[in-house]
Each structure stands twice: as structure tokens, then as C-alpha cells.
């Protein structure tokens, strides 16, 4: 297991491993998402209080927690890059930023369109909402900082440091609804621990859409990282041969 993990640190091994793996992951992702969203939109029963409006949950909750977990992954990769100087870790960290910002944006927008009919407002400076908005700005900041350097080494270092500093925000978002009683409700745990909270007809589609979005995160991060590997390892013999093969020029 550790040896395999260690081998993934080699750009070439990462690239070759993922070549066969990504199409299957993409298919599973598409299937899970299709099942989860169609089920959630059309077949799950309406909520007794919020009616059909609650169906936004099937994208709001997985994108919001995804935004946090992608950041956690980006931070682990940044730390691995800083401590052991693993090149692939930095490439994965770089690939996390845009998809993380996108998940954050989707969580904020779907939350706004859920909040309007239920809370009566698109936006309020609630603790959880504000912390999530800050997370979005941190993602954008990491991307901007990385692109501000001409030197790749300097860009990686600066982005890694900022990423690690931004970690303080994660527990704030996660526990915001517990630490401050503003507006955002606490997680209803999908009824897994408290069976009375939500019936399985409501939370089973959320499990499908949740795993579907986890798959999507990995598909997108892997595809980005593969591009980054080709670009940064362009002088390596195996990349040069691959380019010849792919572009059909000898």
C-alpha cells in the first residue's frame, strides 16, 4: 500500500496508472450522478415543510462538503510538497484549486436559491455562509498567487504556504452552525444516525449524488494533473515519445 503510494509520486507512474483508470472512473461517476440526480429530482418524496424546494439538497450538500474536502486534500498535497519536495503532490495541489473554487461557488449559489424561498433572502452574513465565502476567496487567492510568479518553484512554494495558512478556515466552516447560532441549520446527518430525521427515500439518492461528485472531483483532478505532468516533464524521453505518438508526427 505505502509502496504503491510512494510510486504514485513518480510523474511517469502516475500518468501511466491513470491512463486506464480514468475512463472507468468517469463511467462510474456519470452513472452515480445520473441515478442520484434523477432520483432526487423526480422520485424522492417532497419534504413536508419545504415541498419540492428541498431537492436542491442533492447538489448543495455534496458540493459544500466537497469544497471543504478538496481544500483539505490540497493542503495535504501542499504539505507533502513542502516537506518531501514531491513534484506530483504540487501538481495535484495545483489541480485542486479550480475545482475547489467551482464547488464552493456552486454551494454558495445553490444555497442562495434555497435560502430565498425558505429564509426569505438570497444572502445573509451568517457565520457558515461568510466562512464559505472566505473559502472561495482563499481558493481564488491561491490560484492568483500561483499565476503571479514566473518561476515555477517560487509559484509552488508561495501557493503551498498560502494553502496551509488557509486551513484555519476549514473547522470554522464545519462547526460554524454549532459555535454560533445565526441562521444556517445544523446538519441533519441524513438520518443515518437519527432515523427520525430523514427517511431513506430522501437520503439514499443523496448517497448516489455524493459518491458521484466524489468521483467527479477525482476525474477532474486526475485529468488536470496529467496535463501538468506532460507540461513539466516535457524534457523526459517518455513524454517526448508520447507526444510523437499522440500527435502522429515522427
Amino acid at each position: 500500500m505505502w509502496q504503491w503510494f510512494y510510486k504514485l509520486g513518480s510523474p511517469r507512474y502516475f500518468y501511466e496508472m491513470t491512463t486506464g483508470f480514468v475512463p472507468w472512473l468517469a463511467r462510474a461517476t456519470f452513472l452515480l450522478l445520473a441515478i442520484g440526480l434523477v432520483w432526487g429530482l423526480g422520485f424522492a418524496p417532497p419534504d413536508y415543510q419545504m415541498g419540492d424546494n428541498y431537492r436542491i439538497i442533492y447538489i448543495h450538500v455534496p458540493t459544500a462538503s466537497g469544497a471543504i474536502w478538496i481544500y483539505a486534500m490540497m493542503a495535504v498535497m501542499a504539505a507533502m510538497h513542502m516537506i518531501w519536495n514531491i513534484k506530483v503532490a504540487d501538481m495535484v495541489a495545483k489541480s485542486c484549486a479550480l475545482i475547489g473554487a467551482s464547488f464552493c461557488a456552486v454551494a454558495l449559489v445553490t444555497g442562495a436559491f434555497w435560502g430565498k424561498p425558505t429564509w426569505g433572502t438570497y444572502w445573509i452574513w451568517d457565520a457558515k455562509l461568510t466562512a464559505t465565502l472566505i473559502l472561495f476567496f482563499v481558493y481564488v487567492g491561491v490560484m492568483a498567487l500561483r499565476s503571479a510568479f514566473d518561476s515555477e518553484t517560487a509559484a509552488s512554494k508561495a501557493a503551498s504556504v498560502l494553502t496551509l495558512v488557509g486551513v484555519v478556515n476549514l473547522p470554522i466552516i464545519y462547526y460554524a452552525a454549532y459555535w454560533w447560532n445565526t441562521l444556517h441549520q445544523r446538519s441533519s446527518e441524513l438520518g443515518v444516525r437519527d432515523a427520525s430525521a430523514n427517511p431513506p427515500e430522501i437520503w439514499i439518492p443523496a448517497v448516489f449524488s455524493g459518491f458521484g461528485l466524489i468521483g467527479l472531483i477525482f476525474v477532474i483532478i486526475i485529468l488536470h494533473t496529467r496535463n501538468e505532468i506532460l507540461l513539466r516533464e516535457r524534457r523526459a524521453q517518455w513524454v517526448q515519445e508520447l507526444v510523437k505518438q499522440e500527435t502522429g508526427n515522427a
Binding site: 440526480l37 429530482l41 417532497p46 415541498g51 419540492d52 424546494n53 431537492r55 436542491i56 447538489i59 448543495h60 458540493t63 467551482s102 461557488a105 456552486v106 449559489v109 445553490t110 436559491f113 434555497w114 430565498k116 424561498p117
Partner: peptide, 18 residues
């Protein structure tokens, strides 16, 4: 969507585009 069509479809639409 039981009167919530605008909110639900804007949310899903934004999700799909992003």
C-alpha cells in the same frame, strides 16, 4: 416543482454549467 421551479432549476442549471 410545486411552485419552486425557478429556484430548483436555476440551482441545477448553474451546477450543470460549472
Amino acid at each position: 416543482m410545486g411552485g419552486y421551479g425557478f429556484y430548483v432549476w436555476v440551482s441545477y442549471g448553474f451546477f450543470a454549467v460549472v
